[in-house]
Design a protein around this nucleic acid. Sequence first.
DNA 1: CAGCATCCCGAGCGATACTG
DNA 2: CAGTATCGCTCGGGATGCTG
Lengths: 92, 92
Amino acid sequence: MSKWGVLVLLALTDGTHRWGELRREVDGISEKMLASTLRTLETDGIVSRTSYPEVPPRVEYALTELGRELMEHMLPLVQWVALRADGIVRER
Amino acid sequence: MSKWGVLVLLALTDGTHRWGELRREVDGISEKMLASTLRTLETDGIVSRTSYPEVPPRVEYALTELGRELMEHMLPLVQWVALRADGIVRER
DNA sequence: CAGCATCCCGAGCGATACTG
DNA sequence: CAGTATCGCTCGGGATGCTG
């Protein structure tokens, strides 16, 4: 799971989101990467995908129980990195 | 920081190590990746490099204070992933 | 709206050989 | 012992266009 995986999971930590929302919220991600990232996360059982049989189509993504557990362990690290990242880049 | 970065840091969490030790302990890493990984970690201020002016050469690598702080935040996640990884791979 | 199919390029990385 | 140099290929990922 790369950078995009983390960013998508981060976007999902505050609840369910639709495809288009993720497309907009995860800054700079292409449709291709969003699609493949979501598929990977889904087959890993970290994210759940629910499509509603409507026109126009609506698909919602959310963290599974495993996903929420993962984010519980990952968030502290992400926040620490975010805190330190500026300094690390500046130092070198 | 990729897979190799994590594995090198993991090897360093139990203290200082020499180049050759890391080469053996980090399973499957090539000399090239070990070198570039260590250089990246060093310029990021996560790992310190100490070379002793001896023959034969001896170079030791260790976590810096920043590195230890990082591992403090990263270890819980790594352990959780290690716990779950088997199940995740098996499930799909 | 929510994707999939193609083409394409450059970074990442492995393998191998050489050096201070 | 502790690296550097070079080659070659795989693959992530961007751009673009098409579909149910």
